[in-house]
Design a protein around this nucleic acid. Structure first.
Lengths: 208, 208
DNA sequence: CTATGCACTGGATCAATGATCCGGTGCTCG
DNA sequence: CGAGCACCGGATCATTGATCCAGTGCATAG
């Protein structure tokens, strides 16, 4: 984790990791089958940092917002993690957060027909956002971002709108933008609860 | 592109690519600086397949929906692409689509304060969705998916909700789920147009 | 017709890296 | 005290991205 946080995913080598641990590189293979296992373990480990709201009594929107924001914060704090999300996440910590997400949505009255859409929508939004942001903050460090801005400026007659109302730059833009999109998704989910439009099927709330 | 489509990103080697092109591996480095350039070029190439709606007259929601759906379709068609999205996308084709997105939103009356949020929200949502879906459809092929289902079933007392209302399996689930989340985002964006809540700032529509 | 220059090619080669083989090493428990 | 086992690591291999440099063929100038 320390090695990943400090130098990024591409600088993680079995040899470097072993050196960091004060051991031989081949020793690692006694504890781990492949390097991918190391990444899978690291990825699941950071999810333990995401606090699960318990019995907050603030309502499902608040709970889910807390979870999603915490998820995003962790992904951004460990900037190497977002690029690794393209692998199956089946670790216990990831599953525990998913369990909470599903349970909270279900408890809030989200119909099963919309349940996966809601859970996946929220997850995908976080993943995409974190991936996009870390792409521009870390892999660029400054060189690529500068080059991007210059390139946009140089070709501004071809992409006038993009050059004028360019992509986010300040940190606040990322924050408020993410929060805004999250409320849109939550509003949509909430509307699905109030207005049940799946005919012939009782809502969960009615069954209680 | 053919090599990537057939065998995936991890099987793309400079040697294999050269062999496929009937040339020596080192020859490639005359035309391309690094392997990353190849990936960047490939990534921008597939964006050319996304058709930009032109003068449809169907309204901004239809146009944007068409663009986003086309974007998603391309990412899914080339299943290697989603995992590569964690790199700066500055190719002309990508920029052209972004330009259209920004311009359409702006023309629809989205205030500048919400413009980046809307554009990024939509983009991030597509990226996250495509990444998630391709992760489960390709990298698993079947083995991982099967293992995941068994694992969920084996530990169902720990994750009861997740096991009962498990993640999407059928193709239709992905489609409808994505469409649903997209409408939520669009609804949120549309609400921002109708109800202007940024005090002291005129909406673009008012200035016309 | 020839010479010059240049776009382009590819075999040899290097360094880094993931992974395996296999012979140790030290601790524990009977 | 000795057997068994969890654990270690040097040597080694195959793969891969990338570079060096000696060509090769073609077009154009003289």
């Amino acid at each position: 984790m320390a090695l990943l946080d400090e130098e990024g995913a591409d600088r993680l080598t079995m040899r470097r990791l072993a050196e960091r641990l004060g051991t031989g590189s081949t020793t690692l293979y006694w504890h781990v089958k492949t390097k991918d296992d190391v990444l899978d373990l690291a990825l699941d480990t950071i999810f333990a940092e995401v606090e699960i709201p318990r019995e907050s009594g603030q309502g499902w929107r608040t709970d889910i917002t807390t979870l999603i924001n915490g998820w995003r914060a962790v992904l951004l704090r460990h900037s190497w993690s977002a690029a690794l999300l393209g692998r199956p996440m089946l670790g216990p910590n990831v599953l525990a957060r998913s369990e909470f997400l599903y349970a909270t949505l279900l408890d809030a009255g989200v119909t099963e027909s919309r349940l996966t859409a809601a859970a996946y929508g929220l997850s995908n939004y976080v993943i995409g956002s974190a991936l996009m942001q870390t792409t521009w903050l870390t892999s660029a460090e400054q060189a690529v971002r500068q080059a991007a801005r210059e390139h946009l400026h140089a070709t501004r007659e071809r992409y006038p709108t993009l050059a004028a109302h360019g992509p986010a730059v300040a940190d606040d833009d990322w924050e408020t933008g993410f929060a805004l999109g999250l409320t849109w998704l939550l509003d949509g989910i909430e509307t699905g609860i109030a207005t049940e439009d799946a005919p012939g099927r009782d809502s969960i709330r009615d069954r209680r």
